[in-house]
């Protein structure tokens, strides 16, 4: 069973084809990174796999389940690109809410543990609207892993960050 398998996956916006016939197989436990220039379709490809946008043609499966499937969504963690956070929620409430949406109840301690893992423990009760870009990226990662997913998609987790912050997030 592949963690990700796509067959001729394509996406067009009007007459513009952004992703054309991608065939890909990713093994379980494998870490795969996409590289490409701006507008190459990296985010579009990830967005198709995560149910954010619908493919124009082709098929894919995640963790052996044919997609787009609502059943598999609970088993994946996603940090979408260009997503703002809920400004009026604290970091801890973000995690509680989004874990709840995934159908998992988490304790305060579990939230703190995840926030500690991304270096945001001290800001657990601070509202996201006051966060810097780096902190928002970190919270984006935290919400992607809070429900202990089997498969994680991180879309540009270090874009716009300085070298020091990039290393910090990679660690």
């Amino acid at each position: 069973m592949f963690a990700i398998e796509t067959k001729d996956l394509s996406k067009s916006f009007g007459k513009t084809t952004v992703v054309k016939g991608i065939n890909l197989q990713v093994q379980t436990g494998e870490v795969l990174g996409f590289l490409g220039r701006n507008g190459a379709g990296k985010s579009t490809f990830i967005n198709m796999l995560t149910g954010i946008i619908r493919p124009t043609s082709g098929s894919f499966s995640l963790l052996g389940i044919d997609g787009p499937s609502d059943h598999v969504k609970k088993r994946i963690g996603v940090m979408p690109d260009y997503s703002s956070l809920y400004g009026n929620l604290t970091a801890k409430k973000h995690l509680k809410y989004l874990a709840g949406v995934s159908g998992k109840t988490v304790t305060n301690q579990q939230c703190i543990d995840v926030l500690r893992s991304v270096g945001l423990e001290e800001h657990a009760n601070q509202k996201a609207v006051k966060f810097s870009i780096v902190m928002k990226k970190k919270l984006g990662i935290a919400q992607a892993i809070i429900h202990d997913p089997d498969l994680i998609f991180l879309d540009e987790p270090t874009s716009g960050l300085d070298a020091e912050s990039t290393i910090e997030i990679q660690q």
Binding site: G51, K73, P80, V101, G103
Partner: peptide, 16 residues
Amino acid sequence: HERTIRFLVSRVARSQ
């Protein structure tokens, strides 16, 4: 508009 919907659509069915 604010794209926070992406957190939701990647987690649950849109009908939900």
